[in-house]
Design a binder for these strands. Structure first.
Lengths: 358, 358
DNA sequence: CGGGACTACATTAACGTTAATGTAAGACGG
DNA sequence: CCGTCTTACATTAACGTTAATGTAGTCCCG
């Protein structure tokens, strides 16, 4: 308890109590073949001496670190921030700590982070793969490291994954715009994430088709230049602003943005140029960040079920660690549309009570 | 490289190459008393066999984990998200990984996280203390665990700390409003963080005094009810909305919010009620989240120097780990005002190029 | 040509824990 | 009263690494 010289070890407690190191260890872990009185006694002494188990030594011997690595793009992006937070909670419940690592969506960095995770002997990895993460996955497999892909699948890779129902999300988003009265719809994305993009787009098209909206009344704008961090770049905003102006001119005023963050950028671009404003459009995003951030411009958005994804990822990973060897599982989490009236449809009452959080 | 049975160890490489385990270890770490040819050879074999050092074993023996724990409120809050991200970068540069832990600003949770950090033998802790973290700090000291308080100091506790120049920030914010032409100023906060609140308020008052704004023309509204997570609660928004209406009625239209997130909440509240709008006020926030998030409603804000704080924290912690035993150091990072014209002062040109990021 | 210095390794002993195995003492049934 | 079972511990041997120390062989210099 007092600031003694060195860290207290099982050895110290053994000497103090007269029991063997092993007995002390078993007592503190409440194993069955130690008498209750002894357990009580040893626990008290350990407490008094300020003992704290050395997890490093424990891990070395037992082969378990109770740490998950989470490899994601970067926590400045609220999507990842919320994900990280949610996963933290889910992991903590199960007794795991997190080592969070940021790849900046760069495959090489990602590989080096995977290497680090292996080197640190984490029990498992939750990987939000950047595009082109096949080699990361290969390395994980070669090292027999349990892992779960989060939020995205990788083309041609057999692996566990937890994803949102992207296609359904795209479908719901488009239908939401349609139900708000829009007949000419645009899908807008900076095109970073191939997997999600394709799925959302597919759902978008399905909803359009279903509503009888012809090809010519659908505009798909994927800004696919592969500039690092281009979503924040001024150039992207300029391009976006121009696009928005021309969309409006052509009558495409039902906008489905790939994600809320991109919708924010579009709103910023509108704000800056002033040529078009958000009241000119019906806008729907994806991720429902507004459910977590109380965002000042309410945005209709597809809730991707952060919590369920986090829980599913942690559970799946845990199962794999404990020897579950079923073939790869892809868990698809349900999505739902949250309307905050940015879609352009006026609420019945003037100030409707908005459905917030859950 | 191939999915062999078990993880490759130094032992395996030793057997393969005929050298001793120790020689292999030293070779891979590039120690000086191994011949260059041997180093080369061993490295190649290690590579071929897919060796990856077992950091757990290394840590146990060397007493260094090269891990920092970062204890903060929660990554859903963009302030912490950005902080975590920035610290990650700074730490990674120096060869450290991060174990990020969320306290939800609860002192008890914080204590248990500190305990966990100690148990995991992290090399040091960066602690964003919740109010009333004295016992966490005591425990860290007792365990001789190097740590640095981040963003806040604790009353009556001698410890290293890295903080923004909060008072100067408050001063700059108020002066910014004054320079925008406001003569009746309000400071608004949900009152979570005592340390920062007092400092910012002090600077606010100093600027008011300096500009000859009398007491009666300053309104300080600290919503200090200690409801968990109340910043997100509907009740807080209601209260806030009422307050905003009455402030406007009394002519207090220069608003300085404790932080950007609180300003967002206020904007949301305005949005929801519709009784007042943001164009009715001059608004200044704190943290300059807009420099990282490209926020659609540009907000004048005090930049608190995320990067410098992160670097300073990491550097200080590293110094302490390496035996620096100077008396406690409090590093105050400079702040600066970033104008995005939410202060109510019109820019010279109609669409001014906004100063973004750094 | 003997001895000290240097080079390039090997040997040994930890680090603090936990798993596997061993054992003394008492209980108990026939 | 002998053997077996159970209880409650102790002993031993790892886990994979690194620090400290030991040691052949070579080189150099007087």
């Amino acid at each position: 308890m007092m600031g003694g010289e060195k860290r207290v070890t099982l050895q110290d407690i053994a000497l103090e109590t007269g029991y063997s190191v092993n007995t002390v260890s078993r007592a503190l872990r409440g194993k069955s073949d130690i008498s209750p009185a002894t357990i009580e006694h040893i626990r008290r002494v350990a407490d008094r001496m300020g003992y704290s188990v050395n997890q490093i030594a424990s891990s070395l011997r037992s082969g378990r670190t109770h740490i998950f690595a989470v490899i994601l793009g970067g926590m400045t992006n609220p999507f990842y921030g919320i994900m990280a937070d949610t996963i933290q909670n889910a992991a903590r419940e199960k007794g795991y700590s997190l080592m969070i690592m940021c790849s900046r969506e760069d495959p090489d960095t990602e590989c080096s982070l995977v290497e680090q995770a292996i080197s640190r002997c984490v029990d498992g990895v939750l990987l939000f793969p950047a595009s082109g993460s096949a080699s990361s996955v290969e390395r994980l497999k070669a090292a027999r490291m349990p892992f779960v892909l989060m939020s995205r699948c990788i083309e041609g890779v057999e692996a566990d994954a937890v994803v949102a129902d992207e296609e359904e999300g795209g479908y719901l988003a488009a239908r939401h715009l349609i139900e708000a009265g829009h007949r000419k719809l645009a899908f807008i994305s900076s095109g970073d994430v191939v997997y999600s993009l394709e799925r959302r787009l597919k759902g978008f098209r399905r909803a359009c088709a279903e509503a009888g909206i012809p090809e010519k009344d659908r505009s798909v704008f994927v800004f696919s230049q592969n500039i690092t961090g281009h979503r924040e770049s001024a150039a992207w905003q300029e391009t976006l602003a121009e696009k928005l102006v021309s969309l409006k001119a052509e009558g495409f005023i039902g906008l489905f943005f790939f994600c809320d963050v991109e919708a924010w950028h579009a709103l910023s671009a509108m704000q800056r140029t002033g040529a078009v404003g958000r009241e000119d459009f019906g806008i729907v995003g994806f991720d429902n960040l507004g459910g977590f951030l109380s965002f000042p411009i309410p945005l209709c958005s597809v809730d991707c079920g952060f919590e369920e994804m986090a829980r599913a990822g942690v559970r799946l990973l845990r199962d794999r660690i404990h020897g579950d060897d079923r073939p790869p599982i892809i868990k698809v989490c349900p999505v739902r549309m949250v309307c905050r009236h940015s879609c352009g449809k006026r609420p019945e009452t003037e100030i409707a009570p908005v459905e917030e959080n859950k």
